[in-house]
Design a protein around this nucleic acid. Structure first.
Lengths: 406, 406
DNA sequence: TTAGTAAGTTCAACGAACGAACTAAAAATA
DNA sequence: TATTTTTAGTTCGTTCGTTGAACTTACTAA
């Protein structure tokens, strides 16, 4: 159990800095007076805290804005060069990297394909080189978020079936390469966080990642729900009904996944193309393709009805390549859900495709870093620099408490 | 979205009082020095806060304890007459009431049967009379927790299928009758909270309520997980596999519940007795009864495997009348779970029957009240006294901020 | 030019925790 | 029995973050 610690005045300050920073992140540039109204602090307190953050280089003052009566306010915004995070999505056969700042600006997107045989460390080396070459100021990054399709428990990758990795510590490796804090997360969990962090914060939010396989991520009150072993939400492994005893279990993923639906399509149509081809045919009105998508929608609807009973989400977001079929899925999926919903609210459950397309996990990975940074009131000490581990004098202990805001 | 508010010095104080009170609740009577070590505050701070709470009558000083070197500490404990909560479980055909204090002492237990036709308000009146007659000092109760088998959203009972109630506000009614704060909660959720509050705090904890029907409750980091509409965990309504289209859905509850298993037993044995009779036969080694329990265990194992994939709990607690079959269930259930587990950790998932038997929901209902009281640092203002609503001058607003610790 | 309005700053005061130095009460030791 | 050691609890001056009132600044309206 995590025992919460006593509060001191530093904690007040950190929390109030956090509120200010989160307001700026959510609502864009604001003046001191607007901030004061927004977060419920006095103008004097906001002034003092903002003053510090200006001196730290975290915020910058912009040109006046807000034309109207009275003295115009000073525009406060993040100095994006000091509020940058890297989001990385290590997919099964490609890598997405996105550089984001707290002003919601995408500074860069890099994508490349990977051969499935590439080892994890090779991929991390490649990533590190890319960062060093493309981002001359990369040491000023706040950190790196790493999304991987696998079970993650306390910064350790336990299993990544699609990639064939087990018991790896990629966060540690990457942190040592780039001397930056790295946060590791399951890709569906990351994507779910990204949706609430960058979009509207509905809670709970369920993200359904429809790829070759099937995975989900849940975010409750801005926190990723991981469960005890980081295995929560691996709903692709739900078992179908009561299993015949002593048989290998048949799981949802065998029915509901791109592999499953493409298999269904191929056996019905006699064609051998993949999901992309299926979509092409569907857009031309091809009967077997449309029928396959309708089947997918129906199965997805049943699945969402079950997930709704378990999690009772406020909103469901669909991601992964499967989300590209959304125009064909929407209507039959709704119909299936209406049929199967437990409470009437679930029949009307808001469902939408991710706003970030295939970049959703990378966006979420970046959000992971920025969220942590904000939660600490804009300090970088969320993770000790691994590079210097053991060479530094011990920090902490009641005597040598460090002053955090210089 | 709940916007968190800025912290002031009162918040520090409340949080530190909370830590002290929680330590006392978890670990029993402690001295000031032990408290200081336990929660990480200085002796002076603990002394000051304890002093206040002594004056408020919340704590009392006991006889010296802790024999050993040095001056013995003063035993601090709750004055139970000022730290009492009532937990109520409105079951389908009975009512359980339990009076608990923060020293973990059960002060009273009342139970009575109910006719299923009794209306909700009748049951509440009866309860209120009982409280007034049996607890002369009831106005000093901290509050009442009310557990009901139904979907609860923000203190409103949306549906209680077993009881035939819809859209009721029993918390408001009871609060008006007794002039006490009342917290309403789903019974499985309440029971889950009770397990973590009164027992070891593992997170997440999944409580499975095996009664005529099937319901579950989830507690994550000491918080009940309710979902958007309070419908999370109604896993009895999970759908079995892919449903045939346009058919009424077949749900888990039809396979896994006492009604289902008794039906199975009756059809196999030709007998017409209920679950209690089944258990009697089983304890005498009766073949059909044992077979029925084994079937129950198998289905429960499959169910837990699915729930584990969704929630990845640290521990599963079994409650309701079904838990009385635990001695027969344990071994086959484990075997089924081992077969079906997704990750190896789930094969070894700790599962145990509730320590509180049929009183688990009532215990949890009381915990709901006490937890809230502690979370506020031991103040009673967690809910405005409904009785005086509208007749009091407005509290709050930046001018008239009330001093909380008199 | 002047009045009005809103933004932002300054500063004394408050309140909470802290920590060092103290007193209190017991066991251990001589 | 007297003294030392050890731990419990108190006292009080210090530190620090927020507050609120009074102030200055910068703009619009008349």
């Amino acid at each position: 159990m995590v025992r919460s610690s006593p509060l001191d005045q530093q904690a007040i300050k950190r929390q109030n800095r956090r509120l200010i920073l989160e307001a700026l992140q959510r609502q864009g540039p604001l003046s001191r007076a607007e901030l004061a109204r927004e977060v419920g602090l006095t103008k004097s307190t906001v002034s003092a805290l903002v003053q510090e953050m200006l001196e730290e280089g975290l915020l910058g003052e912009g040109r006046l804005h807000n034309p109207g009566l009275g003295r115009p306010g000073t525009r406060l915004e993040f100095r994006s060069e000091n509020a940058l995070a890297l989001g990385v999505d290590l997919g099964v056969d490609d890598t997405q990297v996105i550089v984001l700042d707290l002003n919601r600006q995408i500074q860069a997107v890099w994508e490349w394909v990977e051969s499935p045989s590439t080892s994890l460390s090779e991929r991390l080396f490649k990533l590190a080189r890319q960062v060093q070459n493309q981002l001359p100021h990369y040491p000023r990054l706040l950190g790196i978020g790493l999304a991987i399709p696998g079970v993650v428990k306390q910064q350790e990758l336990l299993y990544a079936p699609g990639l064939g990795w087990r018991k790896e510590r990629p966060a540690e490796t990457l942190s040592n390469l780039l001397h930056l804090p790295v946060a590791l997360e399951n890709n569906a969990n990351a994507a779910a966080l990204g949706e609430t962090f960058w979009g509207e914060n509905h809670s709970p939010l369920l993200f359904i990642m429809l790829t070759t396989g099937l995975g989900t991520g849940l975010v409750v009150e801005e926190q990723v729900y991981r469960g005890r072993h980081g295995a929560a939400g691996e709903l692709g492994h739900w078992l179908l009904g009561s299993q015949p005893r002593h048989h290998p279990p048949s799981v949802v993923e065998h029915q509901l996944s791109l592999r499953a639906i493409v298999g269904h399509y191929q056996s019905q149509s006699g064609r051998s193309e993949g999901f992309r081809g299926l979509l092409e045919h569907a857009s031309r009105g091809d009967r077997p393709a449309l029928e396959a998508l309708e089947e997918l929608a129906y199965r997805l609807g049943c699945f969402i009805a079950n997930a709704a009973v378990a999690y009772d989400p406020a909103v469901v977001v669909l991601g992964g390549p499967g989300a590209e079929a959304w125009p064909w899925l929407e209507a039959p999926l709704r119909a299936a859900l209406k049929e199967q919903a437990f409470i009437p609210e679930h029949a009307e459950l808001p469902i939408r495709p991710s706003a970030f397309g295939h970049l959703a996990p990378a966006m979420g990975a970046a959000a992971l870093v920025l969220q942590r940074f904000l939660a600490n009131g804009g300090t970088r000490d969320w993770s000790p620099p691994i590079s210097t581990l053991g060479t530094r004098p011990t920090i902490g202990g009641s005597k040598s408490r460090r002053k955090r805001y210089a």
